[in-house]
Design a protein around this nucleic acid. Sequence first.
DNA 1: ACCCGGCTGTGCGAAATTCCCCATGTTCTC
DNA 2: GAGAACATGGGGAATTTCGCACAGCCGGGT
Lengths: 298, 298
Amino acid sequence: MFDWDDLRHFVALADTGSLSAAARRLRVEHATVARRVAALEAAAGVKLVDRRSGRYALTAEGQRVADHARRIESEALALERALLSRQSDFATEVSISAPPQIAVSLITPRLAELKRAHPQLRLRLLGESRMVSLPRREADIAVRLTRPSDTTLIARKVGVMPYGLYASQEYIASRSETDFEFVAFDESLDESPHQLWLKRHAGTRPIVFRSNELSILIAAAQAHIGVAALPAFAAEEAHLQRVETQDGFLKRDVWITYHQDMRDNPAVAATAGFLAKCFREDRSAADEGTLTALEQSR
Amino acid sequence: MFDWDDLRHFVALADTGSLSAAARRLRVEHATVARRVAALEAAAGVKLVDRRSGRYALTAEGQRVADHARRIESEALALERALLSRQSDFATEVSISAPPQIAVSLITPRLAELKRAHPQLRLRLLGESRMVSLPRREADIAVRLTRPSDTTLIARKVGVMPYGLYASQEYIASRSETDFEFVAFDESLDESPHQLWLKRHAGTRPIVFRSNELSILIAAAQAHIGVAALPAFAAEEAHLQRVETQDGFLKRDVWITYHQDMRDNPAVAATAGFLAKCFREDRSAADEGTLTALEQSR
DNA sequence: ACCCGGCTGTGCGAAATTCCCCATGTTCTC
DNA sequence: GAGAACATGGGGAATTTCGCACAGCCGGGT
């Protein structure tokens, strides 16, 4: 019988397509991945990957084996989550993935509360816009602006995040609305709701600056480059001034998601509850009186 | 993430209940099993087994983990079989499990045929009455006298095995049927069909000798101890004489079973076909004219 | 054309793992 | 009460495995 742990390395290689990327995911050396995959091939008696021209590609057999191995992986991941959810104390580490700006402005300032309520709890807060894999436990809890489709995940709508059009006071004072120029995310996000919303309002007026980073857009607005579609809380923090729009704020739902297997883990539950409170008690937009009440779900 | 291969060791321990037995199944040292289970416990952060007073017992957590791990194991075994069935050549080793007497008298004498047809085929013939696990690949093909209940196994009825009552010529000549004494398997087999059949014919006449081994029963009959219920082919080989019974031979079906995943493996298919031929062409009982024709299925 | 970054393949030394053999204590069976 | 089977612990040797470092290769960008 082959070494089951070899399968783990093979799945990583099959998923990522390169030795190095697989090694990063497994936190080992790429040489180890190569050796273990070779060991699996030897035990199986079949070529699983083609090493043609430096690149790795699965053979037909490799595809079949990868299918099996992925099933095994999902079981192993389920087992790991089951083990973690059984940790009855708060001694475990909980990792949260959230969009950077939310992490900085809404979560981090209030972390002390959580720490006070659960002193032994250890946290890791990852400011990544990239979609992390919850089943793979790249994070335990994710804060997202879209509802996840995976039904094994628990999705909890904790509030709405209002987007408005913002620019610097000087910029707004210096020109008429018909001369506005705009600041937006780059093309990879052209299909996202706030980008579409911005483009609708911009109409024929030009987008003069693009970036992949929200913080850069804010800085651009502060530097009088143009008008940006920004979350209200971030724009206020940056002392930007709102440009009124007929349809008011764009409201995007905020979701907190975690795997259902982690439901019974008190550390995860407490952290999720804390995050929900962060959004429930965020009055940045409500203060302006434009939102009568933040919608909340259970 | 824990080492998947540790799970394999833990399953073996959970299945067998002892370090030594688990070590035998995995063909490693018992110390290795102990270490790897300890490593799994450390990674899981939970006690999985109780080492109370020398015996191993799963904890409640251990039970849960074992359930997960067994699912993983069945996937891994399925993968192993899938890999084996893809071996397109005959270079692989096929292992057969069969009752010892059948192995000795019906299979081994004809092995040369098979070897001639497929020179590169390597064989392992295990004469074990114990039920081996086909999913676990303790054997690839099993010859059995009962139909397996596992629906993932292919069961092929290859013939019938006639049982008769046999004793030595001297024994039969020396006494009347009312004075017959009997030779039988030990109590653990009291519920098996041929044992029940023997006891029905014995009626009130005593069983004077018991053994767990067919070959010992044959030797006992040859040593004029009494009358035994024996497969016709084995009794003939031993030059024992038949005691006529009103209901003729007891006919037990002979099944060849192998896992459906191995269906496409040419080596297994060829060997199964060979075994079927062994029984189809066994004329030991037909020669006596008591069986008009050996029933056969495809 | 050149450089640079990322990837793969390989050789080496260190560290971890495993095996093997031992002794000891326990439980269960006969 | 003796014996068998099993778990535990230790020590030392041999094997395996891993990380590290170096070299070569390819493609993209300047």
